[in-house]
Simulated scan of single mutants.
Amino acid sequence: MNTGYSRTKATQSKPIKIYNTLIEAGQYVVIKIPVGRIPSGNIISIKAHVYRGPRIGPCMVALGGVHGDEVNGVEIVRRSIEQGVFNHLYAGTVIAIPLLNVHGFINFSRDVPDGKDVNRSFPGNANGSLASRVARIFTREILPVIDFGIDFHTGGRGHYNYPQVRFNPDHAPSMDLAQAFGAPFTVAGKPIKSSLRRTAVEIDKPIIVFEGGENLRFDEFSIQQGILGMKRVMKFKGMLSEAPDAEATKNFTYTAWLRSPRSGMFHLLKSSGEQVKKDELLAYITDPFGEERTLVVAKQGGYIIGHNNTPVISQGDALFHIASNQKPKILTLKPKTRNPKPKK
């Protein structure tokens, strides 16, 4: 057990208990929580870094790797530990978990071996699948201790997300956290059934979700935005004495995916972070033989908060995730194909 703070400065705050380990004010402890065995017999464990400040304050969880292939979230929490972001808390407690889905991480997979999604398995079951057992461990050991949290994610396979925070608009504490984070984009949206965010808000514990970058690929801009936003939240909660100011945040109420009208090779002309207007050309799709070209145009204005990075796409694939404050129309395009060869 290592101590990261002077115990003489600690107040009379009560110790917290995680997996049969008591952590007092002023302590830093690393706790390994076993969640199961893989077929080889090796035990998979979740590693939680617990930092307790010298004064009474809230308890935050900083969580990465709920989806094993979303490495930017893992790196945000890992780098925060390495850089000592939590070493000098003014007050309160931080539980930093860089990697929740260990099996998915070592197999370059979003999910666990049986195809189950950890973030669709909450509150979990101790006798269920590996995903359900991972969710259950978090629900049993971490969720009762915390007051709020930040869950760090990236875009899914082949999709890039511009740095953004998602929150439950029907829960005022979640909204406050999202605004304090100060991400470039803030997006309102009700939590998905059986997700961590849904499970937490049902017991009035706000957890916001940060999205930034693409799976299996580091994105330095997203990593930095995640670390800076977390610092701002901690300052807002009185846990840090200072944090960098945020630039202007754009707030959105609605989002919708613009989907592909045909299969082919996808050529981007616009990308995430850019504003678009109705009928603006965003991309085009070609066949592999140079005979046809299909234009992809915006059906309404807004900002692109995510886009498809896959060069070869199929009809119906999600191409652009567009956010606005107007209720979206159905954004599936009808093919508008033209011959790219000039007329003689």
Rank of each mutant, 00 (worst) to 15 (best):
I150Q: 02
F152W: 11
R232F: 06
N339G: 06
Y19R: 08
I46H: 04
M230P: 00
P58N: 10
N2E: 15
L100K: 04
I146R: 05
F185A: 11
T3C: 04
S80D: 00
G41A: 09
K327P: 08
K237A: 14
F138N: 08
V112F: 01
K231M: 15
H49S: 13
A298L: 00
V85F: 07
F266G: 05
H49K: 02
R136A: 05
E274F: 05
G301R: 10
A298E: 01
A323E: 05
G273K: 03
D287L: 12
L228S: 11
N339T: 09
E214P: 03
R338K: 14
A180T: 08
S6K: 08
C59V: 13
G149H: 09
Y5T: 12
W257M: 00
T199V: 09
T294C: 15
V85M: 12
T332Q: 13
N125M: 11
I150H: 06
S272D: 07
I192N: 06
I97M: 11
K9F: 12
L89Y: 00
G115H: 04
R217I: 10
V50N: 02
F236Y: 15
H49P: 03
G53P: 00
A243T: 09
R79T: 13
K237R: 13
L216N: 05
K299I: 00
K336D: 15
I76F: 06
I43Y: 10
R157L: 14
A131T: 01
S260R: 06
I208T: 07
V233P: 07
F138D: 04
K17L: 11
Y284I: 03
K190R: 14
F210S: 00
N339R: 02
F86L: 02
A10V: 14
V276A: 06
V30W: 02
Q275T: 14
A25I: 00
Y284H: 14
V112L: 02
A243L: 04
R55G: 00
L282A: 10
L196F: 07
A298P: 00
A126G: 01
G229D: 00
P184W: 07
P169Y: 09
K277G: 10
F86P: 00
I16P: 02
T286M: 06
S194T: 13
F152A: 01
D317C: 05
H321M: 08
T186S: 14
G238W: 03
Q83C: 06
Q326D: 14
E274W: 01
N168V: 08
V77I: 09
R157F: 14
D147L: 10
P169V: 05
T8H: 12
S13E: 14
G57E: 03
K205L: 08
P244V: 09
Q326C: 07
P191E: 08
R259K: 15
D245M: 14
L63D: 09
R157A: 14
G124L: 07
K341H: 15
S314F: 07
I142D: 07
F218L: 15
P184H: 07
